[in-house]
Design a binder for these strands. Sequence first.
DNA 1: CGCGAACTTGATATTTGTCAACTAAGGTGG
DNA 2: CCACCTTAGTTGACAAATATCAAGTTCGCG
Lengths: 280, 280
Amino acid sequence: LLERGVPWGQLDEQADFSRTGTDSSPRGLIFMYVAATRNALVRKLSAATNLKHADVERLSVLCAETIDVGPGRDLILEGDPVGSVHLILEGMAFRYKLLPDGTRSIVALMVPGDFCDLDGAILGRMDHSIATADRSVIVRVSGDMIDSLIDNYPRLTRALWWCSLVDEATLREWLVNVGRRSVAKRMAHLFCELHRRLSAVGLVEAGSFRLPLTQSHLSDILGASNVHTNRTLQGLRRRRLIAFERSVMTIPDPKMLEAFVEFDANYLHLHEAEHDAVFF
Amino acid sequence: LLERGVPWGQLDEQADFSRTGTDSSPRGLIFMYVAATRNALVRKLSAATNLKHADVERLSVLCAETIDVGPGRDLILEGDPVGSVHLILEGMAFRYKLLPDGTRSIVALMVPGDFCDLDGAILGRMDHSIATADRSVIVRVSGDMIDSLIDNYPRLTRALWWCSLVDEATLREWLVNVGRRSVAKRMAHLFCELHRRLSAVGLVEAGSFRLPLTQSHLSDILGASNVHTNRTLQGLRRRRLIAFERSVMTIPDPKMLEAFVEFDANYLHLHEAEHDAVFF
DNA sequence: CGCGAACTTGATATTTGTCAACTAAGGTGG
DNA sequence: CCACCTTAGTTGACAAATATCAAGTTCGCG
């Protein structure tokens, strides 16, 4: 759905009308349609809040400058001041903290449509680091733009705030996960979550999605040792709850996996409200 | 510092000038001074962002209606729609989730100056429950007020957003804590955090603060069993790192406790910026 | 003075971590 | 195209951390 490296600003004339079924739309609506189709962020926000034409246009304008980053690269480090905000367009990134003994703890995964350091921009300084897990296409938005957005676009501000609150809700669920579930269930829960989140942005096909994480990444997400993560993964494979190789995760029966952990997706706040303002 | 049940709006004439050392302040400044002294929220926000006179006044107006709640009472339950927002004035509350098997996981502690369900107000529905840990005085702000605030007070909106981002940062640190530290260190880390947070709102006296949590609460925060929590607590007591009885926590040597867990308070974002706009 | 909740203790079971070796896969220079 | 090298993944044996179970004991309060 997202074509690698094509800035949305240039996509106006490539609109696919199969969904609107009309060619009499004013240019602005075409733009919005393209943006909404191509941009996981706009899609996410539209599902949750009632954005108006001007909001979506403004949001799309933000996304002029994209950068292409290889896998395993730090985007920003703990302690850095934050001047600009990054938004994942393609690929995957993660938030992490290093303990004094060198142990790593991964505290969030970011998929297309997610902001990386919106929090840092408001708080002023990063209290954690961010790195890519995969080759990624990322939009850089200047801090000034965020500031002016807060001053002039209350609906958009609310939408971005909404984003950071969904991140927070996810963090709460991860905390429950690590605090109160066995490693096998933690792992299954993580995979259920990713399945849902990636489905929501159209990145799951036939139960499969790209998951560019090593077992070491998984360990640092789940708070487990590498050895135990390895054995747990094998356990889930043996039960045919998942298949995972070469960075491709396949969940043959999502219902079964969700039943295994009694997964409740409410915390992801997907499809929270029916949107009505984006296309009309 | 906070006198039980006295709405701040009525405190104008009770101002204590010991800190300003002047009696020529215009009435507005007196009001702001009182609000900033009495209201942990205003204090917190002022430390982080540059609020103007009108912002502080607006913030104080929000706090007209207070309610008094006993300990161990649910304020709001998972799944509830959120119509109004609660702010802790006095006491302590916590966020929690219940797993299908009845296990509880506590995912946040709220102290005076913290919002309870600002997240629910923006997201629309609670994805977790909130209960008091102690008898508490709580301000109820209507959702409409929050809405109009977002539309008309961008600086305040940013300040409230800032609050929710600090909550998020705290959640990340809790996740690291539970995922990567032994129970003893988790516990020490929690106590370090509370010491800092309560100090910031003036609730620590001579190394002691009220901590109305049972060992069962602690277990559900730390992701440990009751028995293990009990033994770990005894271990910290034996090493004279803490004293904790009758809901009073005493930390004889905070430096020593912080050294024990290599505590780094950056994530709390206290004293982030020097404020200049509140008193002048 | 008695009752329930909170706390404490010992014995034992389970989960998970650590260590040390080994195998497989992908990438690189000759 | 192969030899090498590095990283990721795998395995078994063992140790440590933590949970569970089943009794107590103490504390606060009516």
